[in-house]
Each structure stands twice: as C-alpha cells, then as structure tokens.
C-alpha cells in the first residue's frame, strides 16, 4: 500500500521534472536578448567594440544562433549525462560552480529547519495548552515581533551586536583562513561556528509563523471528544496531549519540509547578500542578471528538484503520520 504510493509519486515526478525544465528554460530566455547582448553592452561600457563578424563567431560558438527548441534539447540531452554546460560568465563548467553552493544551501536549509522545529514545537504546544497565560502572551509577542521583522534587518542588528559587543566576525559561513581551504574536520567545525547566525536570522520568521500555526491547530484539537476519551482512560495530562491532539496537529509541521527550500533560496537572497553567505541565492541572482543561461538554468532546475523531493518527503511522512490521507 505505502510502497505503491511512494512508487506512484516517484513516477509522477518524471513528467513533472520535464515540465519544470521547460519552464526553467523559458524563464531564462524570457528577458530580451541573450548573454552576448549583455556581454557586448558591458564591453561597450569600457569602449571596446566588437565587429559583427566576431559577434557572429561568438554566437555560433555558444550555440546561440540556433532556434530555441534546438538549444533546449541540447541542454536537456547534456543534463541527462550529468553535464550542466559551461558558464559564459565564469568560463567554467557549471557543475564546478554549483555543487558547493548547493551543498551549503542544503546544509543551511536543513539546520534552519531543525532550529525552526526545535523552537516552534515546544513553544507552540505550551502556548496552546496554557492559553491566555503569561507564558502564552510572551511567546505570542515575541512571535509577532519575529514575524514582522524583515530578515535582513535582523541580520544587520545581530551583526552589529556581534561585532561591537563580542568582537567577532559574523559574516559568511567560514573564517577567512578556511574560505578556500580544502574540506577538513576543522573547516566543518568552523562552518558550525558560523552557522548559528544565519540560522537564527533565516529561521525566526518561519519559527514565529509555525508557533502560531501549532497553537491554532492544537487549540482546535484540544476540545475534541477523543481528548476527553483519552483523559477518561486515566492517561496523564502530558502523555495524552502528546499522544493524541499534538499528533493530529502535527501535519502542518511536516508540510514545512516542502516549502522551506524554495523559501530559503528565493526569500533569503537579500539576507544572504547582507551576511555574504556563499549560498545559491546570490550567485543565481547574478547569473540571471547577466543572462548566464546555463548557470541560472542549473540553479533553477536543481532548486526545483529539491523542492519536489522535499514535497515528496513531506507527503510520505504525512501518509505515515495520518492514516486518513492514505485512504483518499
């Protein structure tokens, strides 16, 4: 039953990914011109002019003279062999540029997700069970402030406090000496030391909204008759709340796995720039600005697949958690 469901969902991903690749490609082509026009304009700014012959030459070399669908199929054919193409701007294979950034993005997303859950879950449960208590009011107030504060502003404030009061450099994900060093245990430790700040900055608003969601959901569930049934059985208050209403109220938590990735990438570009994080966001933004189509395409595609995979994971967890989903 459950395996059939998972298999079905994975098969469904194939046409979906195909559609995503088309959309990604079209999106990148959507702005007028191509990489060469941007390139020529840039050269023009520094008074270097290219003659038409060399422009045509370049165009042919990049394959930009071919019709769109040919470009698309070439791209997809190479993708299937694991070749993401060359970045025009960096003159490097796209895969070299993308993987480390994607890895760090994933790592940061995952840490943020864990942080969000670890903070939001107990506070959400507490403020629902102790509705209108002092603790609930405090959690609610902090939650609303967290919800209302723009991430980049929080980043600036925390950086200011970090530099002025603790004298530490809080930007980036590594100290300068590890920036270009090969991976080692010390570098991983260094990463962990730097991770907390972006995690807090990126996780605060999600935490705040999850607290509110958990509280509202649990409040609905707490008055359901099955809670009374459990209480009449002789369960202790803590055990019964954790086992019954919390379990039912948990669904939105699971759903967050699906949206945390796109959220981090698209919503966190400004924060990533402020904190100079070597994540996918800033590089993708730049690639889109300069119409570096293979680089941008790779990012869009990878992020979409990660989102699809995240959705799949959350759907599978939902099915495991809530038998009612299984039978629909």
């Amino acid at each position: 039953m459950i395996w059939r469901y998972i298999l079905k969902r994975i098969i469904w991903m194939i046409p979906f990914m195909f559609a995503v690749s088309v959309v990604a490609f079209l999106l990148i082509q959507a702005p007028p011109g191509d990489y060469l026009t941007t390139y020529i304009a840039k050269l023009g700014e520094s008074n270097e002019l290219l003659d038409q012959a060399s422009i045509d030459n370049l165009r042919a070399r990049f394959g930009l003279d071919q019709p769109l669908y040919v470009q698309y199929f070439k791209w997809v054919a190479n993708l299937l062999q694991g070749d993401f193409g060359m970045s025009f701007e960096w003159r490097q294979p796209v895969s070299d540029l993308v993987w480390e950034r994607m890895g760090l993005t994933l790592c940061l997303s995952f840490a943020t997700l864990l942080f969000t859950w670890a903070v939001a879950f107990p506070i959400g449960v507490y403020s629902a069970v102790h509705k209108y208590s002092i603790g609930d009011y405090i959690a609610t107030t902090i939650g609303f402030i967290g919800l209302a504060t723009p991430n980049f502003l929080l980043a600036l404030i925390l950086m200011y406090i970090g530099v002025v009061h603790f004298g530490t450099d809080v930007g980036g994900l590594f100290s300068p000496e590890y920036q270009n060093a090969p991976w080692s245990a010390a570098k991983v430790w260094n990463l962990i030391e730097h991770l907390w700040l972006p995690v807090i900055v990126l996780g605060t608003s999600a935490t705040a909204s999850l607290i509110r969601i958990m509280r509202a959901n649990l409040l609905d569930e707490l008055n359901k008759p099955y809670v009374d049934t459990a209480r009449a059985k002789g369960l202790s208050e803590f055990a019964l709340i954790m086992k019954y209403p919390v379990r039912v109220a948990l669904n939105p938590f699971i759903s967050t796995i699906g949206w945390v990735l796109p959220n981090l990438v698209s919503g966190a570009v400004v924060t990533a720039i402020v904190l100079s994080l070597p994540t996918a966001g800033p590089l993708m933004l730049q690639a889109l600005l300069s119409q570096d189509m293979y680089l941008a395409g790779a990012f869009v595609l990878l992020l979409s697949s990660l989102t699809v995979i995240g959705m799949l994971i959350s759907d599978i967890l939902l099915v495991l958690l809530d038998p009612r989903v299984r039978y629909e």
């Binding site: 008759p225 809530d322 009612r324």
Partner: peptide
C-alpha cells in the same frame, strides 16, 4: 487516574469523534 478507565469508565455521545482518527 487509577480510577478513571480502571474502576469507572465512560463512553461518549459521538462515536465519530470520540476515537482518535490517527
């Protein structure tokens, strides 16, 4: 809690919602 369910048990009106759905 020893008495609830052990010595005195209770059943409720709504069999639909008195049992946990999950």
């Amino acid at each position: 809690r020893q008495i609830r369910g052990g010595r005195i048990a209770m059943i409720f009106q709504e069999p639909m919602s008195s049992l946990s759905p999950v």
